[in-house]
Amino acid sequence: MHGGDEVDLAPLVDIAFLLLTFFMMTTVFRTNEEVKVEVPSSNSAQKEPQKKYVTVVVSDSSDKGSTRVVVNMDEYKTRVIAFEGTPYSKDAAGTKGIELKDWRKEMPEILLRARQADPSQVIVLKADKNAKFYVVNEIMLTMKKVKFDNVQMITQMEK
């Protein structure tokens, strides 16, 4: 060893970088969502899809009429196709998702285009636990109308 009163830091660095590499590789960054939702809990163990999905985020609708709906797709191509011709086409390149100003009117068209762009996509519904049933139901009916068969509703593990 060197000076005697000095500690060799090399093994420490080894460990630190090993852990660092591990966390860097396992981390998946969630895209920042503008609408914060608290999802309900269920004891389902099925995991959310990794790719090819369309997400519809529904906010808390405790204030009447102000339900916010954000639509997003994980693939760039589908996003561009889905929002083509809408006022949101400029923002379609971003990964953040698009908040619809008038979702009742705009959503069917966008979802239909998204499904046509890639019919193998699944649809994911992330609604706030305090959302009203009729809002969620309306959205589910829209999904059905554009021929999505199953919906995956995001929940958290039961505590």
């Binding site: 999802v39 269920s42 389902s44 163990a45 099925q46 995991k47 959310e48 899809p49 994911v124 139901n137 589910m140 009916l141 999904m143 059905k144 109308k145 999505f148 068969d149 199953n150 919906v151 995956q152 509703m153 995001i154 929940t155 958290q156 593990m157």
Partner: peptide, 13 residues
């Protein structure tokens, strides 16, 4: 922990 999903068929009108 990735969030879980609860899958169900969509309702008809």
């Amino acid at each position: 922990a990735k969030p879980n999903v609860f899958q169900m068929g969509l309702p008809e009108k």
